[in-house]
């Protein structure tokens, strides 16, 4: 399954662009996606936190990812 991942802030800098196409297993979960990202881009390991949003909601690690979901990497937020 190929999915498209969007990135903002420092995550965009780490990826070198605003989106990444990544192929993963059919039973991909949020937790496995985080592992894949950290394996491919070790700079993610150094961040204070790293979360994934699925369809504009924070997702827990067990959540499955389906083709067509909007997947966004959420590095440490700093609003306000």
């Amino acid at each position: 399954m190929e999915i498209k991942v969007l990135a903002f802030g420092i995550a965009r800098d780490i990826l070198g662009g605003p989106e990444l196409k990544i192929s993963g297993p059919e039973n991909l979960t949020v937790g496995r996606l985080l592992e894949l990202l950290k394996e491919r881009y070790p700079a993610f390991v150094d961040l204070t936190s790293l979360a994934i949003a699925v369809n504009a909601e924070y997702a827990n690690e067990n959540q499955p990812i389906s083709a067509g979901d909007e997947i966004v990497i959420i590095p440490p937020v700093a609003g306000g």
Binding site: I10, G79, G80
Partner: peptide
Amino acid sequence: LKQTVPIWKKEIFADGEVWVAAHP
């Protein structure tokens, strides 16, 4: 808001820039 809202800020200095709170 500072903990949950997906907004990011980059501080721009004379000699560089840094994403706020990105690193411990």
